[in-house]
Design a protein around this nucleic acid. Structure first.
Lengths: 220, 220, 220, 220
DNA sequence: TCCTAAGCGAGACGGTACGTCTTGTCTTCCA
DNA sequence: TGGAAGACAAGACGTACCGTCTCGCTTAGGA
């Protein structure tokens, strides 16, 4: 971690790390709005002037910190989805591909961060950023491949994507605030089951009769 | 609480109205966080001291203003749902009951307000309040009656409710930011179609084979 | 002093008085440059924000405070000089008129203030302001009346005035730093004696033979 | 103190020269107080850290730079005064010895420097330093020799010296600010003429009747 | 000719003070 | 009594300097 880029400025990196950690801790403790720059620098054991050497705002620090978490989300999500196997499975009804719990696992890893930032004491920009990202993900990774298969969507794919994304945010909020009584895998499965019927229908696909098999993820 | 605004002064009411209108206008213009109390009182043509005579905070002014819009939403929603006809229809597959566009109509009436408050420049507390309200509404008005019918839910009703609520927020955001190319009625219908399959399945109901009839709102 | 304008804001006046007193005390203690606004407000028991409600700078506070002392000087000086008796006496050799110790008495009343502000830890602007004022005073009150008498000056009156003013500053500095072993009256007399010959000569007047009478202030 | 700049590095000397030149230029441009160390190093094209390698302060840089100018003044002044011929002439009424214009010539050579440093935007310490130096010069070089001649002073020689020094500062300020319409030689002569009567009288000497001969520098 | 200590550039950092902006409280007056 | 006006305490903001420090580069001057 540090033997490969110790040349220029380890101090700079260290300082930034301290500031970000301090911000995270404080957000969890008292919410973003209630934090002052002084709070952050006190916690990070750094001079206030130094803070402004690195970030213009506490907003900028938040944005960059959020982006770290967010980029991690993007990365894990794309690692999962970025193959052709997916698109192939999609049209052959192999729904098991969608039992992907990486989103929910990622949330667990940053549980406190998400709990606070998505709550009423949180930051609207973060919620919107994550929601928009998820919508884009759904649209590009799922809607587009399906449309490429030649089927005509019954509802605007963009709307579908935003519905799914919003639902995921809602579900995650509920999950985190209610004590996380379910594993990420359970959440992923339940979330898929809840959305699959409507989603596939909206995208113009035929759906195997759901009444017969309560698990839409493992169709006969 | 109520003995002080029974009758006494029209001025008091007038001042509050001015303040709320000013807040609304300013939120639309530059977002809630960027507003100062001075901005509000300047706009309302009221002394800053007077502001504090009525509200402790700009937060309190926002909360009460939000609650006005929100109460209006509650009221229209309940007018629609608060009857037994609904519960009856529910179990007889009369889905037309759910083509209820009051939510979306209400959003249109306060379009700017919602657009800003739900955006990244908005207020997390507002988004969460609306989402939680919608979830509660879904659960109490739909999930509970269904459960009362004796069917066992396949997924936690609370989770389902939060998913639907989140989806609605997501869909509304998309709708408002994309230029509102659909009527509230279209939105209501599409939103219902997207969610119906999953919802009824999750609540333990049998669903008429969807493949045969693409419109779940008009079951055969 | 206060019964005639106590209407509007006694608080404002009180606050300013506190700030000026604090400044004076601090200048004496550690010199102007070493003082911070915080120092002043701490001493005055006033909030720092309040300071900026009244003055833009510590410089402005100094300037206005200086001007108070300075205006007092102007006032006392003019009370002394502003009569025709003076001009009359001038040309009749009644030098006793010039045994005017008001300047030196005024310095004694603000001894600490002058000692510090004229010292190397002081403020150049103050020294220059006082010097320029004294020069103007000499020129207008003494040089002009003399010139009006028809005598041709042997040296530029402006230069003479600045020389006298500079000499007075130099003498005052010496006097204050050396322990003030002389009374203001002594100082005034000595200062006059030192300058009288050269001054009158420069202004084109004849001077009674000084060797005969060592006291040029009481010519025969 | 002296073993470190005996010989070593031309670079060191060059850097210091650059810094001093930069300071001078900047003082003339915007006055000492308004200058930051960064300003100086930018102008000198030197790193800010390097500045602190040579000087603790901008004050120290000023002091040493002032001392250069000042030492030059001292040197020229002493070259003029440091002989016994002077003391001899003194008691024989050969006033031509005092038509010494070196002071004023020196001022002309550093005109901008003096104009700024003696102005209200200048540095009190500089004015005081120069004034005190002049006073010391007058006292040691003129008053002392006269007293050694056995005559009893009519006024405290220290006071006389400070008066003359102050007058010279005042006259120089006037001269520089008014456009320097006189040559240094004129200034020297006029300054002497203005001060001679009073000075010699104060020092206890008899003065040749000034009325008869308006030029005290060429006693009859 | 090398090599070694110096001068120096670059810039992160802890600090202090600045002048501005809000906030919420209070007091005084007016209608 | 409701409101206007505005002084005030409190405290965060982002900026500007300060003086210290560490890190490498370069560049003489002595070996």
């Amino acid at each position: 971690m540090n033997h490969d880029d110790e040349k220029p400025d380890r101090r700079k990196r260290r300082t930034r790390a301290l500031l970000r950690q301090a911000l995270m801790a404080l957000i969890v403790e008292k919410g973003f709005d209630a934090i002052s720059v002084q709070d952050i620098t006190d916690r990070a054991d750094v001079s206030r002037a130094t803070f402004y050497l690195h970030y213009a705002d506490k907003e900028e620090l938040l944005t960059r910190s959020m982006r770290e978490v967010y980029d991690e989300l993007v990365e894990t999500a794309e690692k999962q989805l970025d193959d052709e196997v997916f698109a192939a499975a999609l049209l052959h009804g192999d729904h098991s591909t969608f039992y992907d719990a990486t989103d929910f696992q990622h949330v667990v890893e940053h549980e406190e961060f998400y709990r606070v930032l998505l709550s009423e004491k949180g930051v609207a920009a973060f919620t919107v950023m994550v929601r928009d990202y998820l919508a884009k993900l759904v649209q590009e990774q799922v809607c587009l491949p399906v449309s490429a298969g030649g089927t005509a969507a019954r509802l605007p794919p963009e709307m579908v994507a935003h519905a799914v994304a919003g639902a995921e945010i809602g579900v995650i909020s509920w999950w985190l605030n209610q004590g996380r009584h379910h594993t990420p895998e359970d959440m992923a499965k339940m979330f898929y089951q809840l959305n699959a019927f409507g989603f596939w229908w909206a995208m113009g696909l035929d759906i195997p009769a759901p009444t017969a098999n309560p698990d839409p993820g493992a169709p006969g």
